[in-house]
Design a protein around this nucleic acid. Sequence first.
RNA 1: GGGCGAUUAGCUCAGUCGGCCAGAGCGUCCGGUUCACAUCCGGAAGGUCGGAGGUUCAAGUCCUCCAUCGCCCACCA
Length: 935
Amino acid sequence: MTPASAAPLPKAYRPHAVEGRTYAFWEQGGYFQPHDRDGAPPFTIIMPPPNVTGALHLGHALTTTIEDVLCRWHRMLGEPTLWVPGVDHAGIATQNVVEAALAKEGLSRHDLGRDAFVERVWRWVNETRPRIEEQLRLMGASCDWSRTVFTLDAGPQRAVRTTFVNLFRDGKIYRGHRIINWCPRCQTAISDLEVDYEEERGALWYVRYPWADDGDGGMVIATTRPETIVADVAVAVNPEDERWRDAVGRRVRLPLPGIERELPVIADAAVQIDFGSGALKITPGHDPLDFEIGERHGLEAIRAIDWDGVMSEAAGPYAGLDRDEARRRAVADLEAAGLIVKREEYAHSVGHCQRCNTVVEPLVSDQWFVEMDALAAKAAQVVRDGEVRIVPERFTKVYLQWLENIRPWCISRQLWWGHRIPVWYCLRCDGERITVALKNEEAAGRVSDLLRQGFDEAAIVERADRVQIGEGVTPIVSGESEPEEGCGACGAGTLIQDPDVLDTWFSSGLWPHSTLGWPEQSPDLRRFYPTSVMETGYDIIFFWVARMVMLSCHNMDGVPPFRSIYLHGLVRDAGGRKMSKSLGNAIDPLVAGEQYGMDALRFTLATGSTPGNDMRMTDERLQGSRNFANKLWNGARFVLGELDGARVDRPDPAGATALLPEDRWILSRLHRLAGGVDTLLGDFQLGEAGRQIHDFLWNEFFDWYVEASKVRLRAGDRSPLPVLVHVLDSGLRLLHPYMPFVTEEIWQRLRPHLRDEAAAALIVAPYPRGEARWIDDGAERTFGALQEVVRAIRTVRAEKRVEAGRWVEAYVVADHDATILRDRAAVVEVLARARPLHVVSDRSAAPHEQVVARVLSRGEVVLPLGGLVDLAAERTRLEKEIAESEDRIRRIEGKLASDGFRTKAPAEVIAREQARHEEVQGRLRGLQSRLAELE
RNA sequence: GGGCGAUUAGCUCAGUCGGCCAGAGCGUCCGGUUCACAUCCGGAAGGUCGGAGGUUCAAGUCCUCCAUCGCCCACCA
C-alpha cells in the first residue's frame, strides 16, 4: 500500500491506479479469512458457484456485489466473516461447450472415448477456472481464497457419493423404468425443471379410430401428435362421460396403415370430458399422462421414437423417419384413408431443452430417481416454522407451493462430464443384460457375447466406451471409488460402473455443507454450519435453493443450511430486456469496471436494485456512480489538504458545548444516518442504505458542512478539523462495503491523521453505529433554519439575475432563530454570497423600499436590490403564495376541527399538526403584511 | 387454469409498522473559470402516485374489482 506521504493526490480519482494494488493489500493482510474475536458468532456466506463455462456476466456481478457488501459489513461489525468462493462444473453446459469445440475439429466425443474426452474437458476447465476467479478478484470480492472449492474436487466428490449411498440405503434413491424428458440433441435425460415450455402454433387433428368389429363407425380422437399413433395401446374416456358409456370395453383399430393393432377402450378419471371429443388416445411410451394411465391399467409402453428423435423399428412403416417427417407422413396417410375428420389451428406449449432449445421427447427409460416427498416436507417445515427466512417474503409462497407439489427427481444424465453415479454391476452375474461398446469400435454387444469373443472381463471394463444397463440388473452401491470386495452375489465377478453421471444440481444441493468439509466432521463444518445467508437470484429458487434445503437437512440431522435466503432480481438492459450475448445488449461487468471503475459498477448494482425486483443497467447510472466516487475523492482531497500533517482527536460528546451549531448538526445527521443504515442493512435493504449514505455525503457533508467549515478555516481557525476528519472517516466506513477501493485508498491516507486508530485497514475498521448521545434535534432544527435562509437568498439572486460573483446586502428578520443566525452570520454570508447580513428581530428594522423579500417558515429575508425590483411581479408572487398558504391552513384546520382526528389520532400527530398550523399562520401573516406594503 | 410482480416527474427508479407541501439520479431551462471537484457549483420548471370503489380521523402505502405490461407454476390429448 502506498504510504500516505507519497505523491499528492491526483485531481480526479483514477480507479486503475488503485484497484489491483488495494486488492493485493487486503489479500496479503489476510483480511479475507475469518478471525475470531471474543467468541463472536461467525457470519458465513457460501458463494453460488459460477459455471466454469464462461465469463462473469452482470448477474454474477450483482451476486458478488451484494454478498461482498454483506460480508464487508459484518466483518466491520467485528464478526468472524467467511465467504467461501467456488466454481461449478456445470455438467451439460460444459460438455456442450467442449463438444462444440471438438465439432470444429470434425470430432465427436465418441471419437475420443470417455477417458480422453473427460481429460480434454479438464484441460479446458483448468484454463477457464482461473479466469473466473481472477474476475471475482477484479470485482473486489473479499472471499477466502484459501477455501475455494470446485464441485468436482475430492471433497465434494465424496460428499456426493456419501449422499447417494445414504439415500439409496434409505430407499429414497432408486432405479426406475419410467417416462422422462429426453433431449434428442444432448442425448440425455433432463429433469422437469430443465424443460422450458414455449407456446407454439400447431394443429389439432381429429382422427377417426374405426371400431375393430365395425369398419364404418368409430371414435373420433383429437391429437397434436399423430406420429405417436403408432405407439398407441388403448383409448381412454372418462367414466362419467355419458357419450362414451357404451364404448368402454369395446375395441378400436389403430388407424395407421401397416400396423395391425386393436386398442381396448378403457375408462380413467384422468381424462377430461370437455376436451376434444372426450376420448384420449393412450401412448404410454411418449406422454407422461398416458404413462400414468398405462401404469394403472397395466398397458405396455411402446417406444416408437428413438434416442435421436428418429422413429424406431416399433414405428413399422415409419421407422427411420425423423419425428417431424413422420408426423407429416402420418397425417398424409390418415387423410388418404379418409380418417381425418377435421383439423383445427391450435396453440399449445411445447417443451424445449433449456440448454439447446431442442424439442424434448418424453421417453420411457431406465433412470435414477430421488423420492422427494419426505425431503420436501422437511424443507417446507423449516421455512414454515421460521427457522429459515426468505427475503422478500413473497417468495415463501412460491417455495412452499413447489415443495407441496413435488414429484420424483430424475438425477441420472447420460453425459460423461460430472459426478459418476457410484453404482457398479457384475459382468458375471448380469453379463446377459449389460451392453457395452468398446473404444475405437473394437467390438460392441452384450457382455456375454464379448466374453465369448475372447475379451476378458478386465479388458471390457478397461476399454468400455458406452455402457447400457438393461432391466433387472442388480446394482452394487458403494461410497468408495469401487467396492473392493467385488460382487456380493457371485463372490468375485468383475464390476463395471454405471455409465451415467448425476444432475449437476445434485452436487450443488450439497454445497452449503460439502464446501465446509462434510462428510468429515471438520472444524469448519462445526464452526460455520449452518451458514448465515444464501444470496442468489430468484430464478433458481427451485433448481438450487429448495434442493439445498432438502439435501442439507437430510445430511445434517435436520439442521437447515442457512438462516436467511435473500433473493435478488435479474439485471436487464436499458430497454428492460434480459441481457444476452445473442441480443448483443449485454454489458460486460469487467468492461464497465474498466470504463467507470469497479466501485462505480458495484455502487450502481447495489443501489439500483430492491430485493427480489429486476433492475435496469444503463451507462447513465454508471456515470452517476463514477461521479460519486470522484466527488468523494475530491472531498477527501480537500480535507487532507487542510490537515497539513496534523493529527486530530475525535470530537468529544462530553465537550459538546465547544462545538458550533454546524458541527453538532452534521454529527447528529451522521449518527442518525448510521442508525438507519444499521437497520436497513440488517433487513437486507442494501439499495436504500446505499442511497442514504450517498445523499448524506454529497448533499449534507460536502454541500453544506464542508462549505460551512471553510468560513472558519479561512479565518485561520482549525476547530472544524476534528469534525471534518471524523465525519469523513465515518462516511468512508459506512460506504466501504459498497465502494471498497476508493474508500480504502482514501482512508489509508487519512489514517495517519487519526489519533489512536487501532485498525490497520478500513476493511477491518469498526463500522459506525448510530449513537443516541449525538442526536441533536435542536441543532438539526436551527441549522435547518440557517439552510432555509441561505436557500431563500440564493433563489432570489437567481430569479433576479444577480451576477453570481456579486455580494449583496441582506436582512434576515428572525425571532426564534436569531441567535444562530447572528452567531453564524459569516456562514450565511459566504454560502449565500450576501454581505453584510443584518439579523434583525422586527420587520420594521429592515428597509421597505426597492427590496425583494422572502417569507420563510419562521421569519423573512429582505434583499435591497434597487433597480432589480419589479413590484408587479412581487405582488403576483406574494398573492400566489398567500393563496397556497390559505389553502393549506384550510386543510389543516379542517383536520384539527374533525372530531375523529382529535379523538383518534395519536397525540404526537395532533401536536405536529398544531405546530404546523401555527407556522403556516405566521408565514401567512408575514406574506399579507408584505403585500400590504406593496399596495 | 392458478399464482406473483410492475404501473409514482420527459426517462430510470426510491418511497417496508398509513401521519409535514410525494423524493433522487438523468434529461430540460436559467446562471456560474470563488484556490476539493466542470466526473463540478447555484437556481428553476415538471407528478389528479394506472382506473373505479371501499376501510380509516388520515391512503402512493391497507382491502375489492378492472386495465395494461411482465414473470412463474400446471398431466392445454
